[in-house]
Design a protein around this nucleic acid. Structure first.
Lengths: 235, 235
DNA sequence: GTTTGATGTGGAAATTGTACACAATTATGC
DNA sequence: GCATAATTGTGTACAATTTCCACATCAAAC
């Protein structure tokens, strides 16, 4: 078999930053690393890419192996390649980020796997450069969510406008006027109002909405400017 | 030396998509590949990453070795990892894209290196998945230029508003109202009007402007909405 | 001094974004 | 059963931004 001569071959890993939303707070899914070095330390979901699999295949496989998740939102984020990022051996790390509805997967994650959800501002120390990856992912999430309806990936099928606002406010650590917020969201045509109400949070109850998936696909690439006064926020 | 056991190590290459603007048209810098396979075929600037260099170092080195360019705008674009993308041996390709002022580097590129500029819509067949890389880079350029003042990286130090508009119109294959365009650009505070005029294109001459670099750094991350009617454009 | 081709500028109308306050609902406790 | 309290849902006035549109200016070339 002919190969390129005189070049160094390197390990390539995929690391997944998995964000979830429990209705109140944004969370990050972490795992205790199962092998040395840094075994038992908290880490992103990661694994080496295999000879015959594409990057997307690898990230989906790793997500499935370590958490059981399948068919969730997964997007390539950035490639990290500092020579010393893994002390054992040079490894290129390709970061993917994923958005999921926590409740949908709560059980399987807790039961079968040793993954655990952490509040986004209570993330423990992570191995290698994983904290930098998380920071990059948070920035990307804030950036993209300001323009595109990406946050619906974090919500259950049925959700309320106050929940949605809660999510946006959490992500930008800001408060938005609810009249303007709901008008803006409704004007996108992305929401379909349901007949029933969510009654846990208030006596009056809040109408459920579902996502209009056709609109979602059509408008995903448009600039929708979900965030008011973006100049005043840190994206 | 301890290493990870039982994992496959892979070649990792960096490929640079280099855009230039000659005052009239957007162009792409290509090189004739110097080794087999596909020697003499047109290719992006690429090379394997070396054991001790970071990804950014590698892309800068490759740019310098193949074109002499240094200190230009360079941004990581995406990682391409289909198993069969290089027929000789599996190689991960990390694409970077770069924006330069053609005229500033015209001589050195032509003299010392075998690189050549192609009109963006007359790009020849490229090796491997390089055409896909170019398409991805074009999309990213259109996306980012709609929001951030990135296109100034393509212009010489002194430029005119009609040149600038020409560039935007080329990138979006659209025409913009020049009154609105110049008002919008001037309102950003990014432009400093010079005393002298560019006289080649008209009898009247057009004022030169330079970039206000302080404003440029400050506002680079803001959403500046350079593009009118973004809904009607393909980004 | 007339022609010509590109440059530079302003104002009206429409749209979008922002600020702001009060009524509706119903479980709860008295 | 009635007042309370917590949360939801909605409208209007004003400001800012975006869009649309047309004419005067300049200087080289003739």
């Amino acid at each position: 078999m002919i190969r390129y001569f005189g070049q160094t071959r390197i390990l390539v890993a995929v690391d997944c930053i998995i964000f979830g939303f429990d209705g109140d707070h944004l969370k990050l899914l972490l795992i205790q690393r199962g092998f040395e070095p840094e075994a038992k330390k908290w880490s992103l979901m990661g694994g080496f890419i295999q000879p015959e699999e594409s990057l997307a295949d690898a990230s989906n496989r790793i997500l499935k192996e370590l958490t059981g998740l399948e068919g969730v939102y997964l997007e390539q984020l950035k490639c990290f390649g500092a020579p010393e990022r893994d002390p054992i051996e040079r490894t290129i790390g390709i970061a993917y980020f994923s958005l999921i509805d926590i409740n949908k997967y709560q059980k399987q994650i807790n039961d079968k796997y040793h993954a655990e959800w952490f509040l986004l501002n209570e993330v423990p120390k992570l191995i290698f450069d994983h904290e930098e990856m998380v920071e990059t992912a948070k920035r990307q999430l804030r950036y993209k969510a300001a323009l595109h309806p990406i946050l619906f990936e974090l919500l259950p099928e049925k959700f309320t406008i106050p929940q949605l606002q809660n999510l946006y406010e959490g992500i930008y650590a800001a408060t938005f006027d609810k009249r303007n917020f709901s008008r803006k969201l409704l004007s996108t045509g992305l929401l379909i109002r349901q007949k029933d109400k969510h009654k846990e949070n208030s006596k009056k109850g809040a109408f459920y909405y579902t996502l209009n998936k056709t609109q979602y696909k059509d408008k995903f690439q448009s600039f929708l400017n979900f965030v008011p006064n973006p100049e005043s926020l840190i994206l």
